[in-house]
Write a protein that binds this DNA or RNA. Structure first.
Lengths: 245, 245
DNA sequence: GCAAAAGTGTTTACAGTACACCCATGG
DNA sequence: CCATGGGTGTACTGTAAACACTTTTGC
């Protein structure tokens, strides 16, 4: 039975099929002081339906009727963080019938990668309170809705993606040290990496370039600074290169 | 602005946010005579909205209000093919505002893998006409809606998945030869593989077992038959094994 | 001169790749 | 006996993994 077709052409009442809302949720990743963090909002208070009150949740919103999904996810991100030009990727849809206690709400999960240093939370624009949480601390929390499951799924998606695409750089400032890069990969992959092998591998890929600059003001030998070179990377990909960590 | 929350709690009219339908579409893969094929339906005729008439499209339907997404995808599959216990996996959501000419319809894409030998199309139950198409021939066709894009996305998802999970077996009969398995991987990956190396690699993984049986009635040396052993595979995974082709 | 992190090379083992011939069966 | 696809081994190459010490700076 082709419900969609009937609905759109026949005169029968298919309004029940429109009794579903859909939203986007966004796992916003940041990297700070060797920790991978996720931006959560605390459910409040004046503006929201009184369910899951005071609990932490992923930022999200309904999708406007004339808005693409990616646009909606991007809007949520921008309203919350104020940043633009951010890496954003869809993960998947969550649509269990009872996942929202008030009605049927299907949500499309995204993750985004922001340079945490550049960013300021704007708590009064969107959420009553917003805060970065490590993945470890989130696992100790009961989040609103099915957001614990959703976070695990999104984190796994990041783990997979980071192995085949050079997106980790989106989480670092434009100039970074190899130690920072290694700590980032360790945080995402949740395991330690061997320093010499990591450096060999990363440098052999030939799309991060040595800036011939050094850290300043550190109480030890200053590290060299590098940057990611998108053009070099794309040239390699065009020639059949395959990124793997 | 937390639209979802306002909508559910306030008395304002948010009905425009319910003016969106959502559906599932399913890329049903089968493997037959060394070709990877996708089951398409021809848009017809009596039952459907007169758009994209006579064009080929992916099978899909609206999601019922009290139905999980996976269930809906499974239902589409079962109504069309009659088969059960089939591998099914969500790919992603497609939600461009204008992707459906009649209204806003967000669709969740799935792919499923069926053993083509076991299956009979039931054209009178669901679609006016259903037919297997090779990926090559689909690329020559203009499909309805944005289904050409969707097919490419879904096919790429299969390509990725098959490299890290042993799901190829879902497309083969329970007993298969190594040549059939190789042809399957060649069809999915769209490249040739070297016979000796392929066999070494597959057999070294140790979860396909030699049945000590042979093909019958072939006009050449009969091939040995193998089967996939799920229990062995899971044991390996539990011990930290990682499948790769 | 000491604390702290940066930086660097070599060896070993394993997996990927390339490659060509004999075997078993039906007709 | 011929046509057809089935089945096998070896050498080479490159990448992954394991591993410990020296260097540079600030204080």
């Amino acid at each position: 039975m082709k419900l969609l077709e009937k609905m759109l052409s026949a005169s029968s009442d298919f309004s029940e099929y429109f009794a579903t809302a859909f939203s986007v949720d966004n796992i916003i990743f940041g990297f700070d002081e060797a920790d991978l963090k996720i931006l959560l909002i605390r459910r409040g208070l004046e503006r929201q339906t009184p369910i899951y009150q005071h609990m932490w949740a992923l930022p999200g919103d309904l999708v406007h009727p004339t808005e693409d999904l990616d646009t909606a996810a991007y809007r949520v991100l921008e309203e919350l963080t104020g940043v633009k030009n951010v890496y954003l990727e869809q993960v998947k849809a969550f649509g269990a019938v009872k996942r929202h206690p008030v009605g049927r709400v299907i949500t499309i999960l995204y993750f985004s990668l922001v340079k945490i240093s550049r960013y300021e939370v704007m708590p009064n624009s969107f959420a009553d309170e917003a805060q970065w949480h490590t993945i470890g601390s989130i696992r100790q929390l009961a989040l609103a809705f099915d957001h614990n499951d959703i976070v695990e799924t999104g984190f796994n998606a990041l783990k997979q993606r980071v192995r085949v695409a050079p997106i980790g750089f989106e989480l670092l400032p434009p100039k970074f040290t190899l130690t920072e890069l290694q700590q980032l990969y360790e945080a995402i992959l949740e395991r330690t990496l061997e320093k010499r092998n990591f450096r060999k591998k990363i440098l052999s890929m030939d799309f991060i370039v040595d800036l011939n600059e050094s850290q300043e003001g550190v109480a030890h030998r200053p590290a060299r600074l590098y940057e990611f070179n998108q053009a070099k990377y794309e040239k390699l990909v065009a020639n059949g290169f395959n990124f793997e960590i």
